[in-house]
């Protein structure tokens, strides 16, 4: 957590990113006005439900989305000051898997079943580093050892199907770490795993982070995972950032009604058991229009006139805590009838 934070320097900066998909049924606005930055050695958690745009945002960072249908219509992605969106294909290739590593959710579909793990690991190493086959092999074995796989030299000769789910995810992590990236993007890396295996992987990530000091973006829908490992958290809803805060502030004093409702909807393993779970009525929004109003308004208990008329901007409330909600806006004048609602938060 915070005690291991080295001197901060921004390694990745995203400004006003907008990604849309052009489909036969019209445009899907998957990412709208997303801004954030990542410092070295920092772990940024990105939380949201399916369809909230968290994966598309991160795929956009490396231009991994197929175009068409996807298109990054505006924005700026600065990696160490260089704009990723203006890079040539060669520069992008050097970046992907070199300076920026990526771990995907499902390790079975992201590993090639017809090549050995050793081949796939050394391929990345030889592509990015100027080393021969033997050195690459040695390096690959040490990577497997680092992520906690026993008998690494032998295991290099195995195919992905010979590994269990947790082991495959370790191989994916080894691959992402192969070239000592400055930024690691992990897209739901533990979602497909059992809790005891998830605990092993989280422990591994804590250790790796301490040793290597890279910036990590961790995408998940599990607030519990984020609470354990993140420094800062972004909450996404309907393709937008609705709240952005340090992990302590987010869980102690969540400001956005969506974040509060999400926390209330989760039962806990050791806190007081409630008689009834707090549920969020309604469905997540469809993204076929550019958001013109607050996208959470139809499901929000506290929505009032302005919420359906105007999209709230992300504003800072205190000490870096940002929230996109008209209730938190300085211009917001509380109508007397709604006083009791705020108290009941």
């Amino acid at each position: 957590m915070s005690e291991t934070r080295p001197p901060q320097s921004t390694v990745l900066e995203v400004n006003d990113l907008n990604t849309i998909f052009r489909t036969r049924d019209g445009e899907v606005h998957a990412v709208n006005h997303v801004d954030f930055s990542l410092a070295t050695g920092e772990l940024l958690g990105v939380v949201g439900e399916s369809g909230s745009g968290k994966s598309v945002t991160m795929m956009s960072l490396l231009k991994l989305l197929p175009s068409p249908p996807a298109e990054i219509v505006s924005g700026e992605i600065l990696f160490e000051g260089r704009d990723v969106l203006k890079m040539s294909d060669d520069e992008l290739r050097a970046l992907r898997g070199g300076d920026i590593g990526f771990i995907f959710q499902d390790p079975m579909t992201s590993l090639n079943p017809v090549f050995t793990v050793g081949y796939q690991l050394t391929e990345a190493l030889r592509e990015h580093l100027d080393i021969n086959k033997k050195e690459a092999r040695k390096r690959a074995a040490s990577l497997l050892a680092k992520v906690g796989i026993a008998q690494p030299e032998q295991r290099l000769k195995d195919f992905p199907h010979q590994f269990s789910g947790g082991m495959r995810q370790r191989v994916m992590i080894a691959m992402a770490l192969a070239c000592e990236p400055k930024v690691l993007i992990a897209d739901e890396p533990t979602t497909a795993l059992d809790v005891t295996i998830q605990a092993q992987i989280l422990e591994l990530v804590r250790d790796l982070r301490r040793d290597q000091g890279m910036g990590i973006i961790w995408i998940t829908h599990d607030l519990g995972v984020v609470a354990g490992i993140a420094d800062r958290v972004i909450v996404m809803y309907g393709g937008q950032i609705v709240e952005h805060a340090t992990v302590e502030a987010l869980f102690k004093d969540p400001r956005h009604p969506y974040t509060r409702a999400l926390l209330a909807a989760m039962p806990s393993v050791d806190a007081e058991r409630t008689e009834k779970l707090h549920s969020i009525a309604g469905q997540p929004p469809s993204l076929n229009k550019r958001p013109a109003s607050c996208s959470f308004a139809p499901r929000c208990e506290h929505a009032f006139g302005r919420c359906t008329e105007e999209n709230p901007p992300l504003i800072e409330t205190s000490g870096g805590h940002q929230v996109a909600c008209w209730l938190e806006h300085p211009q917001y004048m509380e109508p007397p009838s709604e006083m009791h609602l705020r108290e009941s938060f």
Binding site: M1, V195, G228, F251, S268
Partner: peptide, 14 residues
């Protein structure tokens, strides 16, 4: 072990 592996949505307790 199973119970201790469940992540809790509370950074202080985690």
């Amino acid at each position: 072990a199973l119970l201790s592996a469940v992540p809790e949505p509370d950074p202080a307790r985690e």
